[in-house]
Nucleic acid binder design. Sequence first.
DNA 1: TTAGTGACGTCCC
DNA 2: AGGGACGCCACTA
Length: 108
Amino acid sequence: MTSNSTASIQHEIYQVVALIPRGKVATYGQIAALAGFPRHARLVGYALNRQLAPDSELPWHRVINAQGRLSLHKLDMNAENLQRFKLEQEGIQFVNDRIDLKQYRWQP
DNA sequence: TTAGTGACGTCCC
DNA sequence: AGGGACGCCACTA
């Protein structure tokens, strides 16, 4: 690992993401704040990138950006298609490639 | 060490 | 509405 502090941060991020219920979504910034690291939205992306595996227990697909859009295409367009598929399977509706956060945002 | 980068967010126009 | 300019901060070369 590059540093043990980031390892613990990642651990906190995973714990929060694991709490997102089926059929709901959260933003990167929301996850960072809930994990106790405000303004670290980008770190959430880095952390999830390491968990990007088909057999991952983590509901990484329920994390989207503050615009209600998917951001994964910059890295892996194929993975983004999977993310959208998983979300739609949970009953989340896309309107013009966008999710209505007022309706679907997770509120702990 | 420094500079560039990025699964982001907010502000401004 | 939607796009651009910054701000942010860990990571990488």
